Simulated scan of single mutants.
Amino acid sequence: MITLDCPMPQLDFDVITLGHGSGGILTNQLLESGVFDLLKNPLLDEHHDGAMFEWSGRTAFSTDSYVISPIFFPGGNIGELAVNGTVNDLAMCGAVPKYLSLSFILEEGLTMKEFWELLVSIRRAAEKAGVSIVTGDTKVVERGKGDKIFINTSGLGNIHPQAHISTKNVRAGDKIIVSGSIATHGIAIMSVREGLEFETTLTSDSAPLNHTVKALLDEFGADIHLLKDPTRGGVASVLNEVARDSRLGVNLFQQPIPVLEEVRGACELLGLDPLYVANEGVFMAFVPAEKAEEIVQKLRTLEYGQDAAIIGEVTTEHPKQVVLHSRIGGKRVVNMLVGEQLPRIC
């Protein structure tokens, strides 16, 4: 038994549950229970999708792990998702992704046909994103000790010279833009879950967003105050994180939020709120009010921004809270996701 010179803090839980990986309240409780304090440093304190620092120029570094089930789903697979996910985390830092690492944990019994198909998808995704996979690692665990395959990717990229992305830049009056229809990825996964199948033609929105983000930064630069991709925990959890960290409030308007009709119908059938469902090809931008419409129009000319819309604004009212203004004129507080809404979604 290792003797620690840092005593473990008093916690409200004794064991890790699936909910601690949801991206919502339990994830934040886990990280804030001592993890952030124990590993504290100025880069980690930003609580962003990747670290941004000086190293041969301004650099962004990010890492993520992928445990999705099933590993093949409509519109993609875990291999493609692993590349796009880390590319997008770097893009949210305002970086141009360049190099990725790739590590596999394979379960005994995974077929070579499945593994090869994943590798081919990884190569195609890397080529589309314009990144090189330069290092990696492979481990195999006994049958029953994994779930076919887990993947970790880390990435490095140079930050765009005009990018200044930080929660500290968010100001009252900023408009909140979403680049496309939300909740598509999560519902596409649910459509092939055992016992939950329902008829749908939906495919995952997994995509590399770096080229789209670069086009925005080329034209608007520092007017892009903050970028976030609403993966685990969805739009609601991201907005709550920004409200908490900026100490400002968020007004979210239901009417303009883009949601495909198939997604809306599936969410109603399953009792899910699209605001909490994971996305993999959508990002959110916090921008000055006077630039918001121009940025939306630019996004609509780009590959992954055709359904872009202004869905909210930052306010000094109700600090640290997100308030949804419904289609029928009502208001309600939108809290961070509690527990695990959709297990193994990314």
Rank of each mutant, 00 (worst) to 15 (best):
T63D: 03
P70F: 09
A222M: 12
D5A: 08
C93L: 05
E107G: 02
H211C: 05
I310N: 02
E317M: 08
P230H: 03
N84E: 10
S69H: 14
K128Y: 11
A292W: 01
L106E: 13
G24T: 02
I105Q: 15
K128P: 01
I16F: 15
I122A: 11
T184K: 13
L38Y: 14
D223G: 04
I187Y: 04
R344N: 13
L110V: 15
G21Q: 09
A266I: 04
F53H: 11
H211T: 10
N169Q: 14
G305N: 03
I68K: 02
G109P: 01
F220R: 04
L100E: 08
V131G: 00
L216V: 06
S33C: 12
A278W: 00
F220S: 03
D37A: 15
V338Y: 10
L118I: 15
R244W: 11
E194G: 06
V87R: 04
M190G: 02
T184V: 14
I310A: 03
P343A: 12
I149H: 04
G221T: 08
V170W: 02
L18V: 12
T63S: 14
G79K: 01
P230K: 01
Q306V: 07
G85V: 01
G24Q: 03
N251W: 08
V250A: 02
Q29S: 07
M52W: 03
G249F: 05
N279M: 04
L81I: 05
G271T: 09
L248F: 07
G233C: 03
V263T: 11
G50I: 01
I176H: 00
G249W: 07
N77G: 08
I310H: 02
I311K: 01
T316G: 08
R143C: 09
V140S: 05
S65D: 07
A183V: 03
R232S: 09
E199I: 06
G330S: 12
L156F: 15
E54V: 13
V131L: 09
S206H: 06
E54A: 13
I68L: 13
G130L: 11
S22L: 06
F115I: 04
K113T: 15
V170R: 00
Q297W: 07
L18F: 10
L90S: 02
E268Q: 15
G76W: 03
M112G: 08
K168H: 14
T153K: 02
K128G: 06
S22W: 01
E197I: 09
V277C: 04
A183Y: 03
H20A: 04
G34S: 03
N41P: 00
I78A: 08
D245A: 10
A243M: 06
P42W: 12
F36A: 04
V35P: 01
G281S: 05
V242I: 15
D174F: 00
V287Y: 00
T153C: 05
K214I: 10
H48A: 13
H225C: 01
K175R: 14
G195I: 11
E108N: 13
R124C: 08
V15H: 14
E268G: 06
